[in-house]
Design a protein around this nucleic acid. Structure first.
Length: 291
DNA sequence: GTTGAGCGG
């Protein structure tokens, strides 16, 4: 049965193979292909024999110039490296058992994966940290200074303090913290700070004073673009593009905050009226945000 | 003409 089908196949070759088989048979009668060179000038000759349409034997000589290593822009070091043996993991693994290439399963969060307002992410019932902490007895954690059980964010003593002098001279609202007697040495890093708390310097506060408003943005301008545009003028602490809550479309304006007011001023002077994405940018000091 | 999100007991 098996032999029969094999015999049938041998007698009746598939049409796609016919030409190849024919050629193979004829090639057997021809002199073998010769390759000469390449010589020191990179000249390589290939001599082949074929049958033309009339069945006559034809000799074909092909001359090609092979690129020398130097022409391929390989440095001497690179040429030398070609003779090295494999090392590292590659020395003990063949191509089949290659585990040097991995597919990453890491989650990469996109900047704006969906328009805001569309309900897709549901907070799991047990996933809310505040629900858990309430049940666990931890009541208040201030988001500004991370102090626990002391005050809420809105009542944080640091909340309304002015930024520059404040950083040089930290206030001491909690001098009576347990374990921090007045005569005990406390390292500068931990001064006026309990475990898990933020020093005033660590607290990130928005600095609206150096806030620059940018308007007439094209609708595909994103925060990263604003960063690139304004970074040359100085350290940018924050960029923001206003998006419509419902449509997710840009509202055509945004804000850039600078660490230094002077940098912000230079950016305003240079970029106001600047052409960007076929639009004329408007750059000015931002008014204090509405409550 | 157009000025920002989050934030609770």
């Amino acid at each position: 049965m098996v032999a029969e089908s094999m015999a049938a196949q041998a007698q009746k070759p598939r049409w796609g193979e016919m030409e190849d088989e024919e050629a193979e048979d004829l090639d057997f009668l021809l002199p073998p292909k010769q390759v000469v060179g390449p010589d020191e000038n990179g000249i390589k000759k290939i001599i082949e024999y074929k049958f033309n349409d009339e069945g006559h034997k034809v000799k074909t000589t092909t001359t090609i110039r092979v690129r020398k290593l130097a022409e391929a822009r390989l440095s001497k070091r690179a040429i030398e490296r070609r003779s090295w043996g494999k090392f590292g993991d590659a020395a003990t693994q063949d191509a089949a058992g290659d585990n040097r290439t991995n597919v990453s399963t890491e989650e990469i969060l996109l900047e704006r994966p969906r328009p805001p307002g569309s309900k897709q992410e549901e907070t799991k019932a047990s996933g809310d940290p505040f629900q858990v902490s309430k049940a666990g007895g931890v009541l208040m954690v201030c988001r500004t200074c991370l102090r626990k059980g002391d005050h809420w964010t809105a009542q944080c003593p640091y909340k309304d303090l002015a930024q520059p002098n404040f950083m040089n001279k930290p206030p001491t609202p909690d001098a009576d913290k347990p374990g921090l007697g007045k005569n005990t040495y406390v390292s500068p890093a931990l001064r006026d700070k309990g475990p898990g708390e933020r020093t005033p310097t660590e607290m990130r506060r928005r600095n609206d004073e150096n806030s620059v408003r940018v308007s007439n943005l094209s609708e595909d301008t994103r925060e990263a673009d604003l960063g690139e545009l304004f970074r040359p003028f100085g350290t940018v602490s924050r960029t923001y593009v206003a998006f419509d809550q419902k449509t997710g479309m840009s509202r055509g304006f945004g804000f850039v905050n600078f660490v230094s007011r002077e940098d912000a001023e230079r950016a305003i002077n240079k970029l106001n009226g600047y052409g960007y994405d076929n639009l004329i940018l408007r750059v000015e000091w931002a008014a204090p945000r509405a409550t």
